[in-house]
Design a protein around this nucleic acid. Sequence first.
RNA 1: GCGCCCAUGGCUCAGCUGGAUAGAGCGUCAGACUACGAAUCUGAAUGUCGCAGGUUCGAAUCCUGCUGGGCGCACCA
Length: 554
Amino acid sequence: MKKKLAELLESALAACTGEGLLEAGNLPYLEMELTKDSAHGDYASNVAMVLASRVRKNPRQVAGIIREHLSDPDGILEKTEIAGPGFLNFFVKEDRWAALLAEVDSQGERYGAVDLGKGGNVMVEFVSANPTGPLHIGHARGAVVGDVIARIMAAAGFAVFREYYINDAGNQMHNLGRSVFFRYRELLGEKVELPENCYQGDYIKDIAAEILKRDGDGHRNADEKTVVPLFTDYAARVIMEGIKEDLREFGVTFEKYFSERTLYENDGVAKLLALLEEQGFVYREENTLWFKSTAFGDEKDRVVVRRNGEPTYFAADIAYHKNKFSRGFDTVIDIWGADHHGYIPRMAAGIQALGYDKEALRIVLVQLVNLLRDGKPVAMSTRSGEFVTMKEVVDEVGRDAARYNFLMRRSDSHLDFDLELAKRQSNENPVYYVQYAHARICSIIRTAAERGYAVPRYEDVDVGLLKLAEEIQLIKAITRFPEVVEGAARTLEPHRLTFYLNDLASVFHSYYNKNRVISDDEGLSRARLFLVACVRTALGNALRLLGVSAPEKM
RNA sequence: GCGCCCAUGGCUCAGCUGGAUAGAGCGUCAGACUACGAAUCUGAAUGUCGCAGGUUCGAAUCCUGCUGGGCGCACCA
């Protein structure tokens, strides 16, 4: 509906400029928004006011000119009004709303999908944690946000590719191998003191025990330099398998796990550096190689090759992004922990040096999670290995509650996650509110079936019977869904879906409590049954976008 | 010291690239099941949108300064 009205408005504006009445130059962003107050009609636009200053006319006068050029070939509009300082208010004919449900019925599971992407290729890279230990609660939020953004982009008409970048090169991995090696020797009866930078968690001991079981004590007196890589490889593989399994149980999957190491093995980093050098974006100083990120707005230049000759993580990361774009993605979305925000300017500089548009890389920051139990903070310390893992959280509160809770706020704002609250099956827990609405509708449909009513198709219903104010409101809420999907895709803001779901469920519950769906009036019963089935479709599709189940019974 | 993010009822948060009377949920108070599921609904109270200026027809939203909080400022990843 929004789209249709926007089109009417657009052609009206075109007509005005055509007659030379409004020389506005570039048309502004066309705003058409739902009104908060029904006295202002159904939709309203502020174009007249935006245009007024440009054409140096009174806003209401401009609105008048636009209104005169408005044509409504399909007869959607009841009337239009000019109100307040110059708003154009659109009143839609009441019987036009119900007709929109035809789309819901015909599209079914696909309802809500839009074509914002027009088939463009998008990569979403997320989680990307070091395989040095199991994923913890913070990773869980990033995992859900990335996963849902990927689902939203797919629904918005993009071809989506999900990737996990395995940081399996560098010091951390070496520390991992050493940690396991130390525990291995400990198991053989040696008294060992774990160095400061080693990983302490129990899972390290488990891996050490596995190696001991497999290889015996053969590594006992081996030279650390030669044997640690073996431990590193083994541990990384085991941990990575665990990570994949935990993610799968959380409903998060990837098309590809991309190993940082392969960048070195295929000379990706070396080639990248050569390319940057060729193009004059790097310079040498005191035996280190610097990337001129200041040329692209970064606050200082960054080291890409250290004094000891080893490339930095940053160098590999540029090479990785070059690799991403070379695989044909138009847009690359990175989901990062908010503590990496300082890294954005240099990464943006990196891709610009490679000749890619700054806009082609979009970075979504995910803030930290405050884990609580009954309102009290849960102590966590990664170093000592005392942390609550993602798996523990999902096992304890369930996949649906965990996912939904992570999506209830903007991803760049801090989130309190209360384990007890997330587990509680009460009105304090918003997941159930939405799921309950879905289950309730399923229950109505079951009851209807017992009384001989199947859910009718649009063609077999007199939607004209749906004319209560609450019914129009419900239809509006249903038909807003594709707009929400588009907005969420445009801004990469998954939380819009949870707010939408909450709103739709609320309108439905209210309607349900006030009106009977199944009554003695057969025609009305069928129309209402159709209406609530459409609500179910919207709820179900939106929940699916969040990776949250839509239960038929609870 | 520099940079980024945040500040909205008692609490937790929305507020859609500036719009009409700032909205939800929780909590509080008062009500609604002989009818399709009460994990629900109806109603009430609660605000100097951190503070001070500025931009304009119009600011929670944009700009400047200040206060208070978070994060970042590696030849770590």
